[in-house]
Design a binder for these strands. Sequence first.
DNA 1: GAATAATGTAATGTATATGTTACAATAAGG
DNA 2: CCTTATTGTAACATATACATTACATTATTC
Lengths: 68, 68
Amino acid sequence: MKNKVKFARLQAELTQQQLAEKTGVTRQTISLIEKGKYNPTLNLCLEICYATGRSLDEIFWIPREGEE
Amino acid sequence: MKNKVKFARLQAELTQQQLAEKTGVTRQTISLIEKGKYNPTLNLCLEICYATGRSLDEIFWIPREGEE
DNA sequence: GAATAATGTAATGTATATGTTACAATAAGG
DNA sequence: CCTTATTGTAACATATACATTACATTATTC
């Protein structure tokens, strides 16, 4: 499983463009993060949480291999 | 308030060197993150969580300005 | 079915997270 | 004291997060 940015964004009724503006990055960056194609910094993760009203664990937690 | 990496590391009874080895980075990187001098990537945050038995929210959550 | 909105993605450039090497400072224990 | 473990930090190199520009694709909606 990847991150849940797209799910959180849709729940917050935001387009990639709107989320990008709220978090201070470009639309492309949001798109690549949703696609799991790179590894965002903590500050950006926090901005995404603030913009969507979620916690880090809700959007970005990934259980360690072999655990749930 | 900064992150709580140092607190979590001490609770797990690890030195910076040991945490670095468990997370696959150098001791210097751990030191700088504890000092708040830079902005780790999500993957490294997750490795730190796994190594210390904590969640993202426990170590890295920072309430948005004006909120608790 | 043309116009527009939303998204995917590629090429290239820049900023910065992280590595490497090295040295200093402090504390703990012999 | 001297040694060793632990931590802070500086200079320089490298990898990669992110920006910029641009174009293609897939819905909508008129």
